[in-house]
Simulated scan of single mutants.
Amino acid sequence: MTEEDKTRKIKELEEKGVIPYASKYNKEIKARDVKKLELGTKGIQTAGRIIQMRKFGKLTFADLMDYTGTIQLAFSINDFGKERYEEFKEMISMGDFIGVKGELFKTRKGEITIKVKDFQLLSKCMQNLPDKWHGVKDEKIKLSERYLDLLANEETRQRFLQRNRIIKFIRNYLEENDFIEVETPILQPQLSGANARPFTTYYHALKKEVVLRIAPETYLKRLLVGGFERVFEIGRCFRNEDMDRSHLQDFTMLEYYASYWDYKDNMKFVENMIKGLLKKVLGSLQ
């Protein structure tokens, strides 16, 4: 379907009183958790993006995706009636966000599926989706249009979720060991904490040049001078230097300081943190 076709369809929907971009929907359960329910459960209400559709005359199967996974949907003329089923076929297409309400059952092929009793268009998609089976292969597109990579590649989505779990564990680990999380200035009057080329900008209110921080080190140490004994920060740092797969100009850094510790204390602390992190995120140290 071309963009012109979709634009025309939006106008047709609006003329029929259908809102193509809803302001709210009460999503009660994630796709992943739907599959944990007992077969026959009624009143299931969820939402997500349609990523696949398979039409068989009076029956249509579709895959609904959210950030936790996918669940199959079944739309039948027997459940909707002819008029409502035709409305569904005209209204919903690949890439659309929809909300559905229905009953859980298992198909003859053993696929756990929601038998849809009612649906609502939440957001009409105006662009064609990437190929489901091949995903986004172009590395430049992956980096510049990350949303397409997320949409098409499960591995990328899992990487984002894993990063979230890693940062959450590190933050909890530090706080459980009496560290206080702080925020230090990103705009700084001069370089400090490392040896790197900075990004510079002009601070009009103060009429002076400032730099984006290359490290939070000296400001964290000032907090120790002020009386805190254990502090940490997880924040963005910026270095105006070369870029490769393991080095970006802006990146997230963890930096912590603990009074009265020597290097042996730090070694033991970091070792235990990494072990705990691997067990939590990967399930083992292997």
Results as ranks from 00 to 15, higher is better:
13 L>G: 03
14 E>G: 04
17 G>E: 06
18 V>E: 07
18 V>Y: 11
19 I>Y: 09
19 I>E: 13
19 I>L: 08
20 P>N: 11
20 P>K: 05
21 Y>K: 05
22 A>C: 07
23 S>T: 11
24 K>C: 11
25 Y>E: 10
27 K>M: 08
27 K>Y: 04
28 E>A: 06
29 I>R: 02
31 A>Q: 01
31 A>S: 13
32 R>Q: 09
32 R>S: 07
32 R>A: 12
33 D>V: 06
33 D>K: 12
34 V>Y: 00
35 K>I: 02
35 K>C: 02
36 K>R: 15
37 L>D: 04
38 E>P: 13
40 G>S: 14
41 T>Q: 07
42 K>H: 12
43 G>N: 13
45 Q>H: 07
45 Q>E: 15
48 G>H: 03
50 I>D: 01
51 I>P: 01
52 Q>N: 15
52 Q>T: 15
54 R>C: 12
55 K>L: 15
55 K>D: 15
56 F>C: 07
58 K>M: 13
59 L>E: 04
60 T>Q: 02
62 A>Y: 03
63 D>R: 15
63 D>A: 11
63 D>I: 14
65 M>A: 14
65 M>I: 12
65 M>R: 15
65 M>K: 14
70 T>N: 12
70 T>Y: 06
72 Q>H: 10
74 A>V: 10
78 N>H: 14
80 F>Y: 11
81 G>M: 06
81 G>S: 12
83 E>G: 05
83 E>V: 11
83 E>M: 09
85 Y>E: 11
86 E>T: 09
87 E>V: 05
87 E>H: 14
90 E>N: 15
92 I>M: 04
93 S>D: 15
94 M>N: 08
94 M>H: 05
95 G>H: 04
96 D>C: 10
96 D>H: 00
96 D>M: 05
96 D>N: 11
98 I>H: 00
99 G>N: 06
99 G>K: 00
99 G>P: 00
100 V>P: 00
101 K>G: 14
102 G>T: 07
105 F>T: 03
107 T>P: 09
108 R>G: 04
110 G>F: 07
110 G>R: 13
111 E>H: 10
112 I>C: 02
112 I>Q: 01
114 I>D: 00
114 I>G: 01
115 K>L: 07
115 K>R: 14
116 V>E: 02
117 K>R: 14
117 K>P: 02
119 F>E: 04
120 Q>C: 09
122 L>P: 00
122 L>M: 15
123 S>W: 01
124 K>R: 13
127 Q>I: 06
128 N>R: 09
128 N>T: 13
130 P>W: 04
130 P>L: 08
131 D>R: 04
135 G>T: 05
137 K>P: 01
137 K>C: 06
138 D>A: 05
138 D>Y: 08
139 E>Y: 05
140 K>T: 09
140 K>E: 12
146 R>V: 10
147 Y>T: 10
147 Y>E: 08
148 L>M: 13
148 L>G: 06
150 L>S: 04
151 L>H: 03
152 A>H: 00
152 A>K: 00
153 N>A: 05
154 E>W: 02
156 T>G: 05
156 T>A: 10
157 R>C: 05
